[in-house]
């Protein structure tokens, strides 16, 4: 279930996520060309999609375009939402496809493998050296994963999507989701264990 929203980098923010039914109603109003309903949906999904897209694209300058492209699809073809999935699943699937297209169009190497993720600015060396080090290692390790693997990790741990929903979003078999998660987890665990120690958790 995609239920985690909020500002960038803030898990479980104070922003109250509307019920899925409310989002469905927004889509129905958008079908009726209700611009105010679209504005509401835009505000709900902007932070969630920003996080998701930066995770896949790793290029901050592409995020805005991909995000607006995603929501333009919602505005132009709201009737394509057929109600068989949640609104969030549908929108994230659009965002995923949009991000992959954007990546193929801008196939330049990523200059900074940590682009998109940074160690938390709140954790100063005095406060939490260990956490900063861990986050830097994880940010680097995430950057070494493929976009498909990063998408699975982010959808699982940040957006709290189930594996069936992730399969729907990524349009792949559930077995693929499990395999990607297995490899990603092994990679992240190996990177942290190499640099901090085998028992960091």
């Amino acid at each position: 279930m995609l239920r985690r929203g909020g500002d960038i980098g803030e898990r479980r923010s104070a922003v109250v996520q509307p019920l899925a039914l409310d989002e469905t109603r927004l889509i129905a109003r958008i079908v009726g060309r209700d611009l105010r309903a679209f504005e509401q949906l835009y505000r709900i999904y902007h932070p969630r999609l920003s996080r998701f897209l930066i995770n896949i694209l790793r290029r901050p300058h592409l995020v805005e375009e991909a995000l607006n492209d995603t929501l333009m699809v919602v505005w132009r073809r709201p009737e394509a939402f057929n109600g068989t999935s949640k609104v969030s699943t549908w929108i994230f699937a659009i965002a995923y496809r949009t991000a992959l297209k954007a990546r193929s169009r801008h196939d330049e190497p990523v200059e900074d493998p940590q682009a998109g993720f940074r160690a938390s600015p709140d954790a100063t060396p005095e406060q939490d050296l260990g956490r900063r080090q861990l986050q830097e290692i994880l940010a680097t390790a995430m950057g070494q994963l493929s976009p498909e693997h990063r998408a699975v990790v982010d959808l699982t741990y940040f957006h709290e999507a189930g594996y069936r929903e992730i399969a729907e979003i990524l349009d792949c078999p559930v077995g693929t989701v499990k395999t990607r998660m297995h490899h990603a987890r092994r990679h992240l665990k190996g990177m942290v264990a190499d640099q901090i120690g085998p028992d960091w958790w």
């Binding site: 930066i54 901050p60 998109g116 958790w201």
Partner: peptide, 19 residues
């Protein structure tokens, strides 16, 4: 391990200032 990983991955802030 996964509980710790979940907490840390979800805590990674995303830098979207350029966007």
């Amino acid at each position: 391990f996964q509980r710790r990983l979940e907490a840390e991955v979800a805590r990674l802030p995303v830098d979207v200032e350029e966007g």
